[in-house]
Design a protein around this nucleic acid. Sequence first.
DNA 1: CTGAAAGCGCTTACAG
DNA 2: CTGAAAGCGCTTACAG
Lengths: 343, 343
Amino acid sequence: MKNRRITLKDLAKDLNLSASTISRALDNHPAISDATKKKVQRKAEELGFIPNSIASSFRTKKTKSIGIIVPRIDIHFHSLVISGIEDFAYKNGYNVTIFQSKDSLKREKEIAKILQNRMVDGIIICLSIETEKCDHFKKFDKLGVPMVFYDRVPTDFDANKIVINDFESAFTATEHLIKKGCKRIGHIAGSQKTDIFKARLEGFKAALQKYKLPINQDLILYTKHLGYEEGVICAKKYLEFSELPDGVFCANDYTAVSVIQIFRKHGIRIPQDVAIVGFSNYPISKIIEPNLTTINDCAFQMGESSAKLLIRHIEDKDEFINSESITLRTNLIVRESTQLSDA
Amino acid sequence: MKNRRITLKDLAKDLNLSASTISRALDNHPAISDATKKKVQRKAEELGFIPNSIASSFRTKKTKSIGIIVPRIDIHFHSLVISGIEDFAYKNGYNVTIFQSKDSLKREKEIAKILQNRMVDGIIICLSIETEKCDHFKKFDKLGVPMVFYDRVPTDFDANKIVINDFESAFTATEHLIKKGCKRIGHIAGSQKTDIFKARLEGFKAALQKYKLPINQDLILYTKHLGYEEGVICAKKYLEFSELPDGVFCANDYTAVSVIQIFRKHGIRIPQDVAIVGFSNYPISKIIEPNLTTINDCAFQMGESSAKLLIRHIEDKDEFINSESITLRTNLIVRESTQLSDA
DNA sequence: CTGAAAGCGCTTACAG
DNA sequence: CTGAAAGCGCTTACAG
């Protein structure tokens, strides 16, 4: 029982007006009289007219659609970013089409190819972990399709970027430990191939230097993916030392959680014996006992900002701007893993 | 420096062929000679021709696009489902556009209105918590746009559904506690306005009945949203009883985690004194100590199945099928919260 | 095996 | 304030 859908023409015939007038009336065009607009709107409502957005996109070459490429959407950080993007996009009449690169460069390239078919007005990207060169994205510049990168951003060309200040955040986290009296501070680092983890390590070192604490290379442990299991291994390494660290700054919350759990199993009190700081403010940081002090990386806001920047670039192309780079403010959330609760 | 994009016509002129032939050649149409196909494909490659998918959609009335409406994408369950949908859709040449209802009926209706503009070939939906009547989705049936509902599904009309067997899963979870020797089993229930939580409560009761255990209403605690904080409150209620339960089946993992934490704080051993089972297999269930025994609700598979069913309905409309309902298998993952580890 | 032609449903520059 | 006309870039039924 599929009825043919109502088109502009149907409305036009019904009202004895031209399709042009109908189109303008529905678009609230200033040249159309209020009487006509009312009449058209009422009729459109009555017949249940829904404009064919594909036809409109085809004609205007605007899809009001944003493409997103993320490594995986089931990683909490990315799902929060996407949520922020969707929220801002929705409010501004854009919809959001998502693709997962699965951290595969090959798949990222495939997706980039697909997105050239004019399905979207702009693209928001977090690079796959495998991506080192971004040639497959350069063509969008030529095509006039704006891009915004977040979190993992290209280093080989000038692009719109939304990032947090990893160096400064790591500095703040480490400084917090120092101010709590820690003198022998460890760091669990992420892959040094990734800029953001490199910056976190640098921020860590810089804080130690500022406060004239020695940088003890043994206390810096490196992981590949900052996974929970890798955190367990790091924690056990610390336990083998003749002297424990009295504070650990972990480059993410997963590893921080494993350190807390392993240390506690060995009767080490947190924060009295060792204070722990994480990074990202994952949901688990509020649940683990003791609650984890961590850096709030503002993922939702990162999504909002990405969408905002992208839509601005879509809607008014300022020929003088080549690229914009925005750094978001993070904040340290102090919880029990560095501070005894009052209770 | 935006160059005009290459179109079929450009290729046609270049090769002294008609646009029809180009179109067919690129589509691998059987009537076109292999020689021509080769020639066309080579030229297309050379000039960097990318077909305008909007024009094609407009013409064929197929967008190769799926719409998803979820309450929130930053809820882990939904992000897993979406991941499953994206994965299956991608393999089959579909892309995926997401909308968040934010659990608001008003917003869900707005989105339903937007999606009538022919942007998508089909829709996958998890109803907002506020939704009781689904009139705003019925028009898609008339329009011939297939829908698949998952998790929270409509009860007021016949629709394609993908669900798990909540009753049976709850039965299994409770039976597991009984077989571990529990005789006084509590249940933390979700809102009884939601079918799935009602079914979990029923499954709980059915297991008790089967094993001739009394159903003690006092031990059944009701929450609104099964939130972590609500779980804390429930756990404290249990502590006020003259006799503790010796097992608790929680309708989700968050409340199970809070029960574990609160009980342990009061020196209650888990599983020796009280055994705990959750529901959903959230990431935290593997991290909390003791690890949580829980029902794996197969969220990713639910996404895959939803996409598979939807695409089947999009691609070959079988006039005889009015609606399909698929129930997925779940499984109990036994961990330390009900069983002492060997270590 | 290939081509000419029509048309999908809008929007908009131009004319009045 | 309104209309006639062209056209966006494809696809496909029809013809040869």
